[in-house]
Amino acid sequence: MAQGEDEEGEEAEESEAGEAPVLPSGAELAAAYFRSWDNPTRHLPLLQDKALSAAWSAALASAPPGTFEGKTVLEVGCGVGLLSVMAAKAGAARVIAVDGSAGAADAARRVARANGLQDRITVVHGAIQDVDLPGVAPGGVDVILSNWMGPGLLGGGMLPGLAHAVETWLRPGGLVLPDTASLWAVGLEDREALQDAKKTWGSVAGVDMTAALAQVIQHPRLDAARRKAQLLTAPQQLAQWRTSELRTGAVVDPAIGAYARCPLRLVAEREDRMFGLMLYWDAAWTFGGALGPGDGKPAVRLSTGPTAPATHYKQLVINFPRSLLLAPGDVLAGELELRPGGTDPRDLEVALRLAQQGGGAAAGSGAVAPIVGTFRVPYDLA
């Protein structure tokens, strides 16, 4: 009898061990995300980003007359309130600053008060999809501001919230700033970073840690190009978003379950080994096309590219499972799909299929198997 009880107990343990883990709900994931921003020090990298601050300052200084004066402005994901204060100082009659982090919202109120703008800046705590704007009717906002961009542009998952704000609160013909954002890819030679990783994951306190290296390398990372010679291909623009045209039902294409599916065609410019892709983005403040070529006043642009001034965003590096030997003119063709994370939609998943075409350095070695993989980019990747 005792033996039977033991066997039943073992079966019960096996059954419990075989059960799928209970995943957190969407509400729990959202709450954890917003709590992660409660400490104001989390906002420091953004606040200390000189290139980003300079772009916003230049944009507001270049705004056509009447853009902000007497207008109602909404900041989506206000953090500690920097852009809201800038908009009020640019002449906005009223600024509504919205953030889902209680700590950030409290800090934004304090910042508004410290700058003597508490009568014109109203801070609302809550996700933009869940809140009403005090004293503002739907379609009653003239300008929306947001630092929505994240790792790989779409990491952080702010685009659906921004789309809701545009669809619900922006008046016809209103502005969203920045008003365009483009994602780019370039082929990368990455020997130095891999050598550094091997040193880091070599011997630690006399313990051989190299067995973990393969897993470390397969995870995307934020990094900056160490030298221009690392860039093996001409850059390719993958996709562009016009923020004033965002709609909640189309941010994620229902036909493919992704933000975008992008044809990829990279052409090698010199002979070397390609270890992976580098993704980066550009944003532009054109004020609905009011600034740009031909009118004497250029649009304000911010690039996170490898040859642009450094930003805290850096570039997103995705290493391949193996390197590819390229010669000048070799073509890497395929597609790259960008989709919300499977467990947490604020993460970004990058699904890649890339095949080497042409002879070049690979000639005579037979067919080269394509690079295929899906890479998860956590929203808090730093």
Rank of each mutant, 00 (worst) to 15 (best):
D6L: 14
E7H: 08
G9I: 00
G9N: 14
G9F: 09
A12T: 04
A12Y: 03
A20V: 01
A20C: 03
P21W: 05
S25Y: 07
A30V: 08
R42L: 02
P45L: 02
L46Y: 03
L47T: 02
S53D: 02
S53T: 01
A61N: 06
G66S: 06
G66Y: 08
F68W: 03
E69A: 15
V73R: 10
L74F: 08
L74S: 07
E75N: 05
V80D: 01
V85S: 05
A87F: 12
A88I: 00
R94Y: 14
A97G: 12
V98S: 00
S101M: 02
S101W: 13
A108T: 10
A108Q: 08
R110I: 11
L117V: 09
H125Q: 15
H125W: 11
D130T: 10
D132V: 10
G139P: 02
G140M: 05
D142L: 05
I144M: 13
H164S: 11
E167C: 00
G174S: 12
V176Q: 07
P178H: 14
A181M: 11
A181W: 07
W184F: 15
V186A: 10
D190P: 09
L194E: 13
Q195F: 00
S203T: 13
G206H: 06
A214S: 12
A214L: 09
H219F: 08
R221C: 10
R227H: 14
A234Y: 04
L238H: 01
Q240I: 04
W241E: 02
W241A: 02
G249F: 02
R261F: 00
A268D: 08
E269S: 13
E269R: 15
W281I: 01
W285I: 03
L291V: 00
G292Y: 12
P293K: 13
G294W: 08
G296M: 09
P298M: 10
P298Q: 15
A310Q: 09
L332I: 04
L332S: 07
L332Y: 03
E335V: 01
E337G: 00
P340I: 10
T343G: 04
V350P: 05
R353I: 06
A355E: 14
A363M: 13
A363T: 13
G373P: 03
L381I: 13
